[in-house]
């Protein structure tokens, strides 16, 4: 199984179409929506994680493109350098997915990579360069 995190931007005409259904049925792909904004009559944006066979992933993405969906892969990852982190919690209110989270008893932070959508919002917020973009 392969995983790919991508940002999908689709035109208003596609909102309401059974795209996910086709991805599942025709390409055997699982789609986890990590973040999304869909406003009627405007462009919709979704950050998704697609899970499936390598070949099906590529075909699925081509299918999306053929529908007029712009796809952009989240090529880079965010790395949390635990040794540099002082557990100040400054990044916590910035992180939209709670990938950076706090144990409220110990006030220690941790990074859950699976939740990170690489939005990079936390990077400039960390005073200790503990959050880094990795290309």
């Amino acid at each position: 199984m392969a995983k790919k995190r991508i940002v999908l931007t689709f035109p208003p005409t596609l909102v309401g179409q059974p795209i996910t259904y086709h991805l599942v049925k025709d390409y055997d792909l699982m789609m986890n929506i990590l973040r999304g904004v869909v406003t009627p009559n405007e462009k919709g944006q979704l950050v998704v994680e697609l899970v499936g066979k390598q070949k099906a992933l590529a075909e699925g993405i081509n299918y999306l493109k053929s529908l007029g969906v712009e796809t952009q892969s989240l090529a880079h990852d965010i790395k949390w350098h635990e040794d540099k982190c002082t557990h100040c919690t400054a990044c916590i209110p910035t992180c939209p997915t709670q990938a950076m989270s706090v144990n409220r008893d110990t006030m220690e932070v941790s990074f859950i990579k699976e939740h990170c959508i690489a939005c990079e919002l936390c990077v400039s917020v960390c005073p200790f360069k503990a959050l880094e973009i990795q290309f």
Partner: peptide
């Protein structure tokens, strides 16, 4: 309103 720290409580401990 979500809160964020500037000083580290766990380091203070």
């Amino acid at each position: 309103v979500p809160t964020g720290g500037i000083s580290s409580y766990s380091k203070a401990v």
